[in-house]
Amino acid sequence: MAVAAITENYVGERLDRVENFHGNQVLYIGWDHHLMFCAPVAFPVSPQAPFRQVLEELIPGAFSLHPEFGEIDWDEVQWHLNGEPFTPDMDATLAEQGIDHKSAVRFATPGLNGIKGCGS
């Protein structure tokens, strides 16, 4: 659907093109049912980074303050990429496994239901 503008071909400038992030892309990560973190978080990260870096650096940096963080069994974690179930390859880069600019990665930790089981 084209916008109705006073001139033809209204084209707005895309402010968040990947080229604007100095070699990085934006990656979103959310921990399901752990709303002590009010929203998923955003990182600038190289598309060439291996997923291992996400797991070992970004995720702990964002979520380790949660009392259940230490209890996560990472082998049991269920992942979603942009809404689809997904199994990350720890050694492949983000780009290689289809995690592109502004992709949203969610992880669920069965058995860990947040503070007092309330989903926080």
């Binding site: 707005g12 402010l15 600038p44």
Partner: peptide
């Protein structure tokens, strides 16, 4: 075409 222009604060911070 309109909303691709959004000046999103978090992205702007990451763009420097």
């Amino acid at each position: 075409e309109k909303y691709v222009q959004s000046w999103l604060p978090v992205h702007q911070i990451y763009q420097g």
